[in-house]
Simulated scan of single mutants.
Amino acid sequence: MSAAFGQPPTNVVDGLEQLVTGSGEPVTVFAHGFAGDIAGTRPLGSGVTGRRVFFHFRGHGRSEAPPGPWTFGDLAADLRAVADRAGASRAVGVSMGSGALGRLLSETPDRFERIVCYLPALLDGVRPQAAVSRTARMLAASEAGDAAAIAAAIETELPADVRGTPPGDAYVRQRTAQVRAHPLAPQIGTLWREPAVPDVAALTGFTGRALVLGCLGDEVHPVAWAERWAGLLPRAELFVYDDPAVLWHNRRDLRERISTFLND
């Protein structure tokens, strides 16, 4: 059991670090993005009723890092293991986490009753250079273990008006400490050698309801990806923010939008 960086104690179960909050039904599992962590996804579930299960994918936090290469099928297996153990009927996927969620749904369309995809991942095709560069920059800084390099890599992801502010600096410190304590596994870089979802048409078989949240102006998560997800999932609602810094400028609305959808 471990408590770090101001969050409640976590447990490693079957090789995956997890944190459970709340109680009762329904149960919602939260899947973070690349280089993300439990602390970063917890705000998305602050208004969600029932039990909330947060976890670290392989190669993140204290979760195990099996030999690579890895695929999104491996991440989908991580997500499935956590969701099955908790009895989760709902899921929230952020960026890379949504890619794992999509892969799982392409294999088991009826696994979840409701899902939320925030800044959804590329399903197939070629990632933009901004995304490729971000991955390389973060993995290199993590491997070097240099605090300044890690902080610099993280700071580039902050909106200009947040850099150098107390909240921005606190975020950079927290994330830097997390990555230094638990470096990202280099195997993560092999994920994008093949599509997240090889058969995207399989997503049309999803039997539940979906909320897809995208934003304009995000070079790493083009809005076209969110539109494609919403077009493939049969019962999907799409909402697009006009500001790429959603977590900094529209956090309350984001949390309320997610909780309203999942609690309805």
Rank of each mutant, 00 (worst) to 15 (best):
D146N: 11
Q129I: 13
P128A: 08
V126R: 12
G145T: 08
A152E: 15
G125Q: 07
E155K: 04
A131R: 00
A151N: 05
A147T: 09
E143R: 13
S133F: 02
T135H: 03
D110N: 14
R134P: 04
L122V: 07
R111K: 13
L122F: 07
G102P: 12
D146L: 14
R127G: 08
A144V: 04
E107N: 14
M138A: 09
D110S: 13
L104W: 11
D146M: 06
I154P: 01
A147F: 05
L139F: 09
E157M: 12
A151P: 01
A130K: 06
L101M: 15
R137V: 04
P128C: 11
L122D: 00
F112Y: 06
T108N: 10
R114T: 04
Q129R: 14
Y118W: 14
T135E: 03
Y118R: 03
S106D: 00
V126D: 14
I115R: 01
A140R: 05
A121T: 02
L123T: 05
P128R: 01
S133P: 00
L139D: 01
V116C: 03
D146R: 06
A144G: 15
R111N: 13
D110G: 09
M138L: 14
T135I: 08
L119F: 15
C117E: 04
S133T: 08
A144F: 10
E113S: 05
L123N: 06
D110F: 06
A144M: 12
P120T: 08
L139Y: 01
S142M: 01
D146Q: 06
Y118S: 04
A149V: 03
L123Y: 05
A152W: 05
R103W: 13
L139K: 00
V116S: 02
L122K: 02
A136L: 15
A141M: 09
A149L: 10
Y118A: 08
L119R: 08
A130W: 07
A148S: 14
T135P: 02
P120R: 06
A153E: 07
I154Y: 02
E107Q: 15
